[in-house]
């Protein structure tokens, strides 16, 4: 069994590497091809295809992006990698706070909805509607409100929480209410209280679904944090770095790309931590 599992791991690693190579090949291939045809391709049916998006200015070489991490971002400054590391940690901490806020809010809403059909029917439409409002539109308002009540530091986490809570509510509600009638009858035969049914049956039953939601929320909270940082004028995070390197894009295109790589690494790291927690907590299932 362990042998089968380790060979499975090897296969996974193989596929990951293969995909990575494919991306590198496509990226660099497209660039090389575009340069060979001088960034304009004559189409057989007439007209030309503009390929300037593949030039070094618009789409830097992967090698240049990688190298930019170790080069100083400004003359005599620290290497970009260090700057991005600090920015990533700053953004990650906001994202974690937002994730926790959103997770708790989402979970509480799910518990309320699971116990009251009336509230579920009355409130759920608003919860859904809240997610159709573009986050970019409300982010500046949240920043202003939080500044007014002297909690500026919470503005960005709240924006992240706004993106986080929804999947948790939806999945947790599904998990809390999908207990089998027989399992409920068992609890009733013990004259269990509502709370006992919640803690000993509904919540454990919902855990796999809750973790599915938390994994979605982990990445969403990073995106939400970065979006929140953009209008709030916070310089220390990845959002600030994106704005900055976007403004001075011409002077060094790889820097913006390196920032994007850093942002996605932060999201993946957060996802990985939640997935690990899931492995440690939801351990009763039959291995596939």
């Amino acid at each position: 069994m362990t042998q089968a599992r380790s060979s499975e791991k090897l296969q996974t690693a193989f596929i990951v590497v293969l995909l990575l190579l494919a991306v590198v090949g496509l990226w660099e291939g497209a660039k090389a091809f575009s340069r060979a045809v001088n960034y304009a391709l004559d189409l057989p049916w007439g007209g030309t295809l503009d390929l300037r998006n593949f030039n070094n200015q618009q789409l830097p070489h992967l090698g240049d992006i990688a190298r930019s991490f170790v080069e100083p971002a400004q003359r005599n400054g620290p290497p970009l990698g260090l700057i991005l590391l600090n920015a990533s940690l700053f953004t990650l901490s906001s994202a974690v706070i937002g994730f926790v806020l959103g997770g708790v809010l989402g979970f509480l809403l799910a518990i309320i909805f699971a116990h009251s059909r009336l509230l579920q029917r009355g409130l759920l439409p608003y919860v859904v509607a809240s997610q159709t409002i573009p986050i970019l539109a409300i982010a500046p308002m949240v920043v202003v409100w939080m500044r007014q009540i002297n909690l500026t530091g919470l503005a960005v986490p709240i924006i992240a929480a706004y993106l986080t809570f929804f999947p948790v509510t939806v999945y947790a509600l599904r998990g809390l209410t999908s207990v089998s009638p027989l399992q409920l009858e068992l609890m009733r035969s013990y004259a269990a209280t509502r709370w006992q049914i919640l803690f000993k049956l509904r919540i454990p039953n919902a855990l796999p679904q809750i973790f599915t939601a938390l994994k979605i929320s982990a990445t969403a909270s990073v995106v939400g944090t970065i979006i929140g940082e953009l209008p709030s004028g916070i310089q220390s995070g990845l959002g600030g770095a994106i704005l900055n390197f976007n403004q001075y894009y011409v002077q060094g295109p790889p820097r913006l790309w390196a920032t994007i790589v850093a942002a996605s690494l932060v999201g993946m790291l957060f996802f990985g931590v939640v997935a690990l927690a899931e492995r440690l907590i939801v351990r009763w299932n039959r291995p596939e």
Partner: peptide, 11 residues
Amino acid sequence: FVFQSATLYDW
């Protein structure tokens, strides 16, 4: 009460 199926909690 012993039900028609065992109804154990998976977790």
